[in-house]
Design a binder for these strands. Sequence first.
DNA 1: TTGCTCCTCACGTCACGTGAGGTGGC
DNA 2: TTGCTCCTCACGTCACGTGAGGTGGC
Lengths: 263, 263
Amino acid sequence: VDTLVTIGEFSRMTYLTVKALRHYHDVGLLEPIDVDPSSGYRRYSTDQVAAAQAIRRFRDLDMPIDQIRAVLEASDGATRNQAILQHLEYMQQQLERTQLTVASLQALLEHAPTTASIEYRSITPTRSLAIRDTVRFDAADAWCTEVFAELHDAIKRARGAASGPDGALYFNDFFERGEGEVIAFVPVDGDAMQSGRAERYEIAATNVAVMIHDGPFGDLDQTYGALGTIVAERNVGAAGPIREHYVDDERTEVCWPVTVSQT
Amino acid sequence: VDTLVTIGEFSRMTYLTVKALRHYHDVGLLEPIDVDPSSGYRRYSTDQVAAAQAIRRFRDLDMPIDQIRAVLEASDGATRNQAILQHLEYMQQQLERTQLTVASLQALLEHAPTTASIEYRSITPTRSLAIRDTVRFDAADAWCTEVFAELHDAIKRARGAASGPDGALYFNDFFERGEGEVIAFVPVDGDAMQSGRAERYEIAATNVAVMIHDGPFGDLDQTYGALGTIVAERNVGAAGPIREHYVDDERTEVCWPVTVSQT
DNA sequence: TTGCTCCTCACGTCACGTGAGGTGGC
DNA sequence: TTGCTCCTCACGTCACGTGAGGTGGC
């Protein structure tokens, strides 16, 4: 025995605007129980209040409509709760990321960035086990964590050993379009040990200018800015991907391609 | 002695995509130092790297472009830092709000909402001191805090006293369009005591169904849903604004207009 | 000379909001 | 019968992203 209400009443009961309700109808997120064929008047059931309120809460958390639909359509309750809890976790991570950004912005506003020094280096060809993929800029962190685990796993299973620090090549589209090729590699000397996505790959030799980034990973842009500025000022820039070496938890070497090795 | 770089190089130095840089040029947020008149090629100065990185960080925090422009254009450093710190505070509040929402969503998922009881009441005309305004739904909290302080201040200055709990009328557009008239009032018997925005106002009599909301303010929607559902089921709804009484810090009376008082 | 970088439209996306102009229901 | 509610386009907003089609620079 459900009661039908107009869109206006339903709006007051759910804190959703009339425009939003019509939009959710259009995109099939929340369909009125009945639509009058002649007038087009929407009728909502009081049974839909809970769903509507859930939608509003999820939208308050900026969950995309498609995801909300997926959550609501998950017929079995367990799957549904899973999906919800997953998004809550994601939100928590977002919160932490935002807090980090706020903190680092505050730090930047207080002290001027330290001027680090650079070094020119000729890197010889690097034999490695690598995974390559097209990666979105903002998904890069998660991708790296995943593939480096995979690479080290493959090496361990083949009883091999890394002959240098982890590294990655970032091609220009990765920065300039926000999505592009990335090659994550672990230097190895041993024989074939490909498995899954991991394959043998010899990284070509390059000349680079190197600056060591020492500090929080979120501030890597500072090092890019400083290093890029120096390379531009000295007019030694060259084509090619930017290379990073993850020396240890604290330090990352950023390698910017240059024309020739100099003093 | 600044060095000029292409849009691509600048992109790599700042982590801003080429598309974003062109957009910021279009809207005047970050103008290249030089644009070749024949080819249209943009040239950025390495001196602009810091500004570009600041822009990216602010955008990561979803600061609107207009606000970023205001911050960057604030010529004097003090004003500028003020504006930035203000936004950081705002972000912190956002964070807290989001955390509250996440928490209350989790709570909702665990226990079913308590079914509260309602009461019919005939409210007689209420003499009051009131402030009325057009208010956005999401700005209502802040607005209320502000105007109730103002109202109590006016009453105190006139050596008057409230004759009942604070209350407010929310007209339909406030919910249905997300922006509408709100009248915040404090019941008073004394004489004229208007000052500033505060004016004498007699609230008309109404018949209402009342449900007491007891719990966090962020869950008020639950009470609206429950109360609205009952009113709809009993088919006693009437036109008019929704009225709230802020009995104490814990409890709010939600008053839904109905046709006649019933048992 | 060949690619690659860079350019400008024009349109798409996401989740609605903003009117305009018109009709239905109590 | 009068307002008020509700309706449907069509377009705007915000911050870019997505091609298409074309040109400039090393």
